[in-house]
């Protein structure tokens, strides 16, 4: 079944809050970021959006599912008119290049450890327009929460209602996050941290969305499951861009 290529609808635009100053600044920032390149980007990709995989310390497998981000980017290229790159970027939290990537991504199974510099850099990035999507590939939950407490000591995780825009901005998910893989029984959870009304971190728990983005032969998921995961990934990226 070939999917249509919906563009970001006017209704989605209307859902943005009327904050002309901030929105304009964000757009400019995105444009600026997208127009800046890194040493590792090719010239052709310098203006394109990519997700930066966070290379954290602590021993966890930050590199898990390397085919997941490229597949998501390919899906976004097919289904939307967002100019996306072919490959993911990789950046450490303390790296100054962190600010070049508006959308960060992290996953893994194990331990995450942020140094003070990592936490400070990441916090600054997120407070100034950055967005982080984290997916628990089972096993990183407690370490991740501890690490985020280092970044935002005063913030508490909030579980998003099913009516939140992130579940409907591009594709509808009326029951919230789809459950891609079963590790623990129970429904998935979509948690978020907010700063002045803007979501800065989105964390998917007990579903393993990113496994659904990986190549089919990696986990042996059927097409329906992978499609559901990719659609949700697209929702996350689009929401991060328009909020």
């Amino acid at each position: 079944m070939k999917l249509k290529r919906p563009s970001i609808s006017k209704s989605s635009q209307k859902l943005r809050r009327d904050r002309p100053g901030v929105n304009t600044a964000l757009k400019l920032l995105v444009v600026l970021l997208m127009s800046c390149g890194t040493l590792t980007e090719t010239r052709a990709e310098s203006n394109r959006l990519t997700l930066a995989r966070l290379h954290y310390s602590g021993g966890g497998d930050w590199y898990n599912d390397p085919s997941s981000i490229p597949n998501l980017l390919a899906f976004l290229h097919q289904q939307t008119n967002i100019a996306v790159a072919d490959q993911e970027a990789r950046v450490a939290p303390s790296d100054a290049k962190l600010f070049s990537y508006p959308i960060l991504f992290m996953t893994g199974h194990g331990r995450i450890r942020f140094s003070d510099k990592d936490a400070e850099n990441l916090r600054s990035h997120l407070l100034h327009g950055g967005f982080l999507y984290a997916d628990d590939d089972y096993g990183m939950d407690s370490s991740f929460r501890e690490a985020m407490k280092q970044v935002f000591p005063d913030k508490e995780w909030v579980e998003l209602p099913f009516s939140h825009l992130i579940y409907s901005v591009l594709y509808p998910f009326p029951d919230g996050l789809p459950k891609i893989h079963e590790h623990d029984p129970g429904p998935p959870q979509g948690l978020a941290l907010f700063e002045q009304g803007r979501m800065v971190v989105f964390y998917s728990l007990n579903t393993n969305i990113t496994d659904g983005w990986a190549d089919a032969q990696v986990h042996g998921d059927d097409e329906e499951v992978r499609l559901s995961a990719l659609k949700m990934g697209a929702n996350i990226v689009v929401y991060a861009l328009i909020q």
């Binding site: 199974h109 089972y138 096993g139 508490e156 909030v158 579980e159 998003l160 209602p161 099913f162 009516s163 939140h164 029951d175 919230g176 789809p178 459950k179 891609i180 893989h181 079963e182 590790h183 029984p185 129970g186 429904p187 998935p188 907010f194 700063e195 002045q196 009304g197 979501m199 579903t207 393993n208 496994d211 986990h219 998921d221 059927d222 499951v225």
Partner: peptide, 25 residues
């Protein structure tokens, strides 16, 4: 624990609507 089986469906009620103070709005 790392064996990945396809996820099952668990019916769940939507979490409550977000309050302004939760999202620092």
């Amino acid at each position: 624990q790392r064996q990945a089986e396809s996820g099952k469906y668990y019916p769940k009620a939507s979490p409550p609507a977000l309050r302004s103070e939760q999202i620092d709005q």
